[in-house]
């Protein structure tokens, strides 16, 4: 994986983003919508893997970050400029993640998974209650949303930023610290890493993108309610995509988000139940026989080539 330097990888990302930015004028509306979904999930999965892939933490908080961003948009749509709403959505999620992280990042494994899931649900039910009791609404309509092209470019920009950030983190001391934490946290401490600080920092950084993406996607959906934007499925699907792709890599989650979005879009509409049965089966087979994710296929292929 280290055959490309950091600069090469960033250049490649920016080049890909540049090509993709022309799509609104080249694609049909349907294809563009599909690309948008791909980009969104790629952004979510790459940010998830940025923290969880390296540290072996299992966070189910993506839905919480996404929903918070969406509600920043929903509540601020009339007063905030579009770009500002997206930025604030990301910042809100990052601040939330820092606070939560400081409190719960000492927990590991299943405990951490359950508590991050619980936190998302807590925020969702809290907002539901607040909206019903004080605002008298169930959901909110976003009036006067920006054009689809603008939203597409925002999501593309955010996803590209997430990839570049992930690349930079991986090459940095923070990335090394996170890998050490994932391997043996106490050992990392005895070698001088302030593990708590590193984890809170990275967790917070990885929350910015889902928050900002949530804020942008809320504009696209134009009607949001707590169940749709805090949908636990967003969190689950992100974890699935990242792990199926290979959570310790960056290219893996991107590839698998494309695969997932295509499968979902094409099959779900035609065979809703059968599709999910097949998806379930596929998932089980992948975990059992390709536990390193799609990325390990690439590794194997390279390994084979280098030995030949």
């Amino acid at each position: 994986m280290s055959r490309f330097t950091l600069r090469d990888s960033i250049l490649a990302t920016l080049l890909a983003a540049l090509v993709l930015s022309a799509m609104p004028w080249l694609m049909s509306d349907f294809a563009l919508a599909l690309t948008l979904t791909c980009l969104m999930y790629a952004g979510l999965a790459v940010s998830w893997a940025m923290f969880c892939g390296a540290t072996n933490y299992l966070s189910l908080a993506t839905a919480a970050f996404f929903g918070m961003g969406a509600y920043v948009t929903a509540w601020g749509a009339e007063t905030l400029a579009y770009g500002l709403a997206v930025l604030l959505g990301g910042l809100a999620a990052a601040v939330f993640a820092a606070l939560v992280g400081a409190a719960v990042l000492h927990l590991r494994g299943a405990y951490f998974a359950v508590i991050t899931f619980g936190l998302g649900e807590l925020v969702r039910h809290g907002i539901t209650y607040y909206e019903k009791a004080y605002a008298g609404t169930v959901g909110r309509v976003i009036s006067d949303p920006p054009e689809t092209v603008t939203i597409y470019h925002t999501v593309l920009l955010l996803t590209a930023l997430a990839v570049v950030t992930a690349l930079a983190v991986r090459a940095s001391r923070l990335g090394l610290a996170l890998r050490g934490i994932g391997s043996d946290e106490e050992r990392a401490r005895t070698l001088g890493v302030d593990t708590r600080r590193a984890k809170v920092l990275a967790f917070s950084l990885s929350a910015f993108f889902p928050g900002a993406l949530g804020a942008a996607m809320a504009m696209r959906w134009t009607y949001i309610d707590p169940l749709s934007v805090f949908n636990p499925f967003i969190g689950f699907q992100t974890v699935l995509i990242a792990m199926v792709g290979g959570a310790h890599t960056i290219l893996g989650p991107i590839a698998s988000s494309v695969l997932f979005s295509l499968l979902t879009e094409y099959l779900r509409l035609q065979f809703p139940y059968l599709f999910l049965v097949i998806l379930g089966l596929l998932l089980i087979l992948l975990v059992l026989y390709l536990p390193g994710g799609l990325a390990s296929l690439l590794d194997r292929w390279r390994w084979g080539k280098s030995r030949a």
């Binding site: 050490g180 391997s183 050992r187 005895t190 593990t195 708590r196």
Partner: peptide, 24 residues
């Protein structure tokens, strides 16, 4: 103080059963 403070002050150690970062 936490272990990382000791490490930064120049205390380094090994463990009875080696604790290397296996994947690295």
């Amino acid at each position: 103080k936490s272990a990382h403070a000791f490490a930064r002050h120049g205390i380094a150690r090994t463990f009875q059963t080696p604790r290397v970062f296996k994947e690295m």
